[in-house]
């Protein structure tokens, strides 16, 4: 059974017939967006995290048909004209990338935190990133990168003592 869906994917409108059995993860990877990683497949590791209407969700347990009418963003849509987004740049600068498998998901969740415009304490950042597993256990640098991302344009938005 197929269903026609229309959605925005990294700022471009896409319209296609999709198999109702597919997850959004499978659809995106079939379309070539392999920055969306398949990890556990059951919503535990966060490697497949994408933004759906600016909210981080696990695309492995999100049916592709649900994307109809939504704004979907993947890591491929972040860099503009070959320039990394501030969140991506922070991950590079802080050495928050080891094997890289968890990175796209973490970058997407961090992007959502930055775009929310809210200030987050260190504990709150940890909580917001807790749906991502890093098998290299590089959490300290990931946390540093997220904190750096949330401190953009010289304005310190984190609620720590600095």
């Amino acid at each position: 059974m197929f269903k026609r869906i229309t959605f925005t994917l990294n700022h471009q409108v896409v319209s296609l017939e999709v198999d109702i059995r597919k997850s959004l993860l499978e659809l995106l990877r079939d379309l070539g967006y392999t920055g969306v990683k398949k990890g556990c497949g059951v919503g535990e590791c966060g490697a497949c995290t994408v933004l759906v209407d600016n909210t981080p969700l696990d695309s492995c347990i999100y049916l592709a048909v649900w994307a109809d009418g939504k704004n979907i963003r993947t890591v491929e849509g972040l860099a503009a004209d070959g320039v990394l987004s501030p969140v991506q740049q922070a991950f590079v600068e802080e050495g928050a990338v080891q094997c890289g498998f968890c990175t796209p998901g973490l970058v997407m969740t961090t992007t959502a935190l930055v775009e929310s415009g809210r200030a987050y304490s260190r504990e709150e950042i940890k909580r917001e990133l807790s749906g991502h597993l890093c098998r290299c256990t590089g959490y300290q640098n990931i946390l540093k990168a997220a904190e750096k991302s949330l401190t953009h344009s010289g304005e310190h938005k984190c609620r720590c003592d600095k």
């Binding site: 919503g43 966060g46 981080p56 696990d58 917001e128 990133l129 807790s130 749906g131 991502h132």
Partner: peptide
Amino acid sequence: MGGPQIRHI
């Protein structure tokens, strides 16, 4: 319950 991505949906 769960983690952020799960709680969102």
